[in-house]
Nucleic acid binder design. Sequence first.
DNA 1: TCTGTGGATTTGTGATCACATTTGTCCATG
DNA 2: CATGGACAAATGTGATCACAAATCCACAGA
Lengths: 218, 218
Amino acid sequence: MNEAQTRQATLANPPAHDRVYRGMRLQIMHGELLPGQALTLRGIGKQFGVSMTPAREALRRLTAEGALTLSASGRVATPELSNDRIEELAQIRALLEPELASRALRRAHLALIDRMESINEANARAIRLQNPVEYIRTNLEFHRTLYLRAQSPAILGLLETVWLQLGPTMRALYTRLRRTTAPPHHRLILEALRAGDDAALRLALRTDVTQGLRHLQG
Amino acid sequence: MNEAQTRQATLANPPAHDRVYRGMRLQIMHGELLPGQALTLRGIGKQFGVSMTPAREALRRLTAEGALTLSASGRVATPELSNDRIEELAQIRALLEPELASRALRRAHLALIDRMESINEANARAIRLQNPVEYIRTNLEFHRTLYLRAQSPAILGLLETVWLQLGPTMRALYTRLRRTTAPPHHRLILEALRAGDDAALRLALRTDVTQGLRHLQG
DNA sequence: TCTGTGGATTTGTGATCACATTTGTCCATG
DNA sequence: CATGGACAAATGTGATCACAAATCCACAGA
């Protein structure tokens, strides 16, 4: 019938628990939180101006996606990943991302490549400015821009949960080894896209993914 | 007014929301619910003898894993997957499961293969008895028994969420085409395991996964 | 037979509270 | 200086309630 969203004056259309979820999700994926950071229901609730109930639902949702870990006493915190687990998550990325890139290749037109190019420049800028959050954000946006063309929401959705799990760890990685040069494989990815070379594209993504996380081992 | 909180202090029992989650999860993964089945918080609460709060947390968790879909009005139901989505999920299985099998191959000893053999016989029995839930259950157990040896909890966890999403659909598939013979690829999997042939094992799993879901298309 | 319209019922959402348990702090004791 | 125990604060859990929106259903009108 009437599609008018005449919600209560206090809040906008999206439910409170969804706003909390989205906000926390961005913070985690972009590496704004360090590994092992503890979170409380009342604290999150206060931060977003809601009660415990929506905060609880948001955190439950995030723990279900692996973005947060649940201690035995029910306390939530950002995960501190073991080396084995990092290797597993990197392997998942190495399996899914070449597939998504290959699916996107057929649909990739010039405007898309240009957009990725400009995102890559923003990424290089973030490195110059030593801004970890912006570096992670633009790096993920570079990949996501390509994968959105794959028209494969299920695979992309699963991949994003993997990124979520790696968020705090990637932040810790960045601050530990302060990189000064842009990731070299982004150029290879763009070249393979322009050439329409499927094999080269898959290889470039596999190396970009595994290389970036190999530094964390040890 | 329920004055009997009856928390049974110091009795190490899982929280209510966790019990609800596990129960619903099994029902979904084993195909006890058909696609499109609607669920209500109060209904689930009554079914498990708890209030709305734990039921809400359990359903939120399951929707986060893709086991349930959330309508615009906030109602939850088992997913009705499109053909495209089924193809995507099958592709994910085709990528992850050969990898898990390969990792398990090095650690697979004779007792494991024997156990898989007996599970496979239970699977064939379920087919003879035309029992869809038991068929799905033993089929998943066959795969999981192998993958547990891979010692890769992150990959296996991700894969299980894919199985979850396919649960109701696999049930619908089964009742639609009433299979009468056991899946032929399980034998190939067992043979490749005995021979220690990595390439053959990967291939057997890829075909087992894609073949089983190809029937659903159209 | 079909349609839409009104009200009654069902349902999800968010706040609040009681309670058991965990965690933190401080001080006495060895 | 280290250790442990008692007390206080903090925290997750689950029940309950009010409320608005969505859904359902009977019934009148075309």
